[in-house]
Amino acid sequence: MYTELNSILNVTPDSFTQGEFILVSDRQSDASFLIHHFLSFYLRARCKVCFLGLVQSFSHYSAVSQRLGVSLTQAKEKGQLIFFEGLKESLSILIPQETNPESQAMDFLRDPSVGLRSLYEFVRSSLSSSGGEEKGADRAEEWGPPVLLVDDLSVLLSLGVSVGAVLDFSHYCQATVCSKLQGNMVMLVRCNGLEEEDDGDDESSDRLLKGLTHQCSLSLHVQGLPTGYCRDIHGQVEVCWRRRQGDGTHMQKKLFQFKVHDKGASFFARGTSNAVL
C-alpha cells in the first residue's frame, strides 16, 4: 500500500468510496505495482477480496505482499482472501489429473467461444456466498464490502477469448460486485502497441481498453516517459476520475510521475523528482 497514492486518490483503508470500478492500464510500461498496491490496500481495509491471478503464481503475489506488510497466506486462512490461481487451474484442465478436481471456472480454455460465464459464476459465488456463511457460523469474521481484483484481463485475449466476451464478463462483474454488492473492482489491462489514431482495425487490446474505459469510474493509466528511459523516474501515471466528484466536476485528469522503490513507490508532480530539484 502506497500512502502517497492514497492521498492522491483521497482514500484511506478506513474510508473509501464503494461501488467503484477502477481500471488500471499500461502501455509499453508495467502497471502491476498498482495491483499489488490495491491488493494490500483492500486487505488492510478488511474487505472480502477475490483475486483472479492469471499471470503469476500465488507465491509471487505473496512475496510482494510480504514486502508491503501484508500476509496473503494468513488472509487466505482467515477466509478474507479467495485466491484464484489461473496458472494452476488451467494446468488442471489441460492435463487432467485425478488428484485435483477441476473447477468449471476455466472452462473457456476448452472452447473460447463459450465466453467467460463460468468465470463470472466463480466470482459471483465466491463473493456473494460470504454473506450467508457469516450469518450461519460465528467463527467467520465480519468482512467489509467485497472486492474483485483481476491481473490481468489481456491474458484472456491471448487465450482466445474475444474482446466482446471479456467486456461482457467485466460488465457482469460490475453489475454484481459494484452495483448489487456495493463493493469495488480493480482490473488491469496491458497494451503493447503504440497509441494509434482510429484506423478501424485497432489491435484487440486497444479495443478492450476503450470498452473498459467507458465502463470504469476511475482509471489509472501508466506510461513510460515520452522522453525515454530514466533511472530516477520510472514513468508517468494519468489518473482520471470519470464520475461526478464531490465538487461537481465531471471528469478530472491529473498526471503524476512515479518511481517504484523496493518497498513502496513515490508519486510526484511532473518535473519535481528528487533528481531534478
Binding site: 460465464r117 463470472y120 459464476e121 461482457d168 460488465h171 457482469y172 453489475a175 454484481t176 452495483s179 448489487k180
Partner: peptide
C-alpha cells in the same frame, strides 16, 4: 438491462 443483459 444492466444487471443481466445476456440472461446469465
Amino acid at each position: 438491462a444492466f444487471t443481466d443483459p445476456l440472461g446469465w
